[in-house]
Design a protein around this nucleic acid. Structure first.
Lengths: 246, 246
DNA sequence: AAATTTGAGTTATCGTCGTTAACGTTCTCA
DNA sequence: TGAGAACGTTAACGACGATAACTCAAATTT
């Protein structure tokens, strides 16, 4: 243990920090990001607003930290979704994680908007911590998908698209990113398929959460399932073993 | 003409309304949606804030109207992008419109966030005006894509995906939407391809505009071009005539 | 042409917000 | 036991949306 005795004061402090963030979370859920205010938090906690400055540098910093926690939370949810599936079935794992991602985002719309919508100034951007893969929750969140995808590739299950589809410029621009990975031998076509899948997943979830699909669909789930199936058919050439999560 | 003499007062009024919206637009561009405030607008116009209430019911209503104008603006940009291309080449038209959509959104990031990000309370949602296809700018914006897509289908150029890929539930849920169209005979697989394409386009543009791709790519354009090419290859079976717009 | 109504703008005010400064109070530790 | 840090308070500043009451000029009506 690095901290033997958390020293009473430190215990109280961490408890207060937790209560502040938890109150902010509740305000976020109930009224959107703009409902998070220092005065509202303090009011609900039976305090006065300036007291919060003992714990956070500013409202912006508070929201940034809340956002980091949310990334960790969704990462944990994704990790939990893949655990019951054997590690040698990465396609099924990816499938379950995609469904869980959609489920989490739909059940946490305000959080999703904060994390994946218009970037809030102060919230750590992903590319700022591209070097160390664990420091930021965002990278960890991406890695969960990436690890399974690489496993799938190592199994030889991924059919990279024909070369003529891959633009030379794409290969050129992706090169520095490949160097970041611990698998630099990953073909450019496979990386393209990964990014393409992440974009399709994000696109569908974002449109659904933001209500931009309600004009066409009463329920997005069938389209989601169909599109995910089409994607896995595209990259593996076979239908994946599906079990619609939840 | 319905209005013979716009009656001096009305001319002044519309001019003031225009100036208010144009000032709001500038504030939006310079400082994001949160920078739009009645006081700031009034300050820049040499007025006092309450005067604006003579022209708009509230800040929310002002932003909603600004948003409608933006939908019309992007619709016009898309329309201008397809005009130089013959109407009997809908695939090329769609391709050009997709590129133009990305270009417009990248050059108008703050506007994009307002229109396609987290929905702002007060901004008219698309599904509220699903009946009349012209009333809302959003629908007109969607229609520009839809029209070309239907033309492409009428030419027999779209290969619908195999039936087993299309979920029965998808067909079920899309039925009411098909009835809305003037082409109810449109196969469910074709509608799926359209929505899938729109989602892929939105996903890529949204991630790029929001900066959620900068961790992987210094320049998103090659991936955009590649993915669009892959999409058109998927739905038509052949590579479209491309000319990377701008 | 005079009287009246309408429209557009003002000032004053209320309650909200983030943030800072100055001031107590309480707990911890040497 | 005393010094000092940590935690909390009140007071205040400037910015925000919104409303009410008021002034003034323009348009309309008589």
């Amino acid at each position: 243990m690095t901290t033997v005795t958390p020293s009473r004061r430190e215990r109280l402090r961490t408890a207060t920090v937790a209560e502040i963030k938890q109150t902010a979370r509740r305000l976020l859920v109930e009224g959107g990001a703009s409902a998070i205010s220092l005065r509202a938090i303090a009011r609900e906690m039976g305090m006065t607003a300036p007291a919060i400055y003992r714990y956070f540098e500013s409202l912006e910093a508070l929201i940034a930290e809340l956002c980091s926690d949310l990334y960790a939370e969704v990462s944990a949810a994704l990790d939990a979704a893949r655990q019951p599936i054997p590690a040698d079935q990465p396609a099924t794992r990816l499938r379950a994680m995609a469904s869980e991602f959609r489920r989490w985002c739909i059940n946490h719309r305000a959080e999703f908007a904060l994390m994946f919508g218009e970037p809030v100034p102060g919230v750590p951007e992903v590319d700022e911590v591209c070097g160390q893969h664990v420091a930021s929750g965002v990278v960890a969140f991406c890695e969960v998908f990436m690890v399974e995808f690489v496993t799938l590739w190592r199994q030889g299950k991924i059919k990279p698209p024909p070369d003529e589809v891959i633009s030379d410029q794409l290969a050129e621009k992706l090169a520095p990113y490949l160097a970041e990975l611990d698998t630099p031998e990953l073909p450019i076509g496979v990386v393209y398929l990964f990014l393409s899948g992440w974009i399709r997943l994000y696109g569908m979830v974002a449109m659904e959460v933001f209500g931009h699909l309600s004009w066409a669909l009463a329920d997005v789930e069938p389209l989601f399932e169909t599109d995910m199936a089409a994607y896995f058919h595209l990259i593996t050439g076979e239908a994946p073993a599906i079990g619609p999560a939840v």
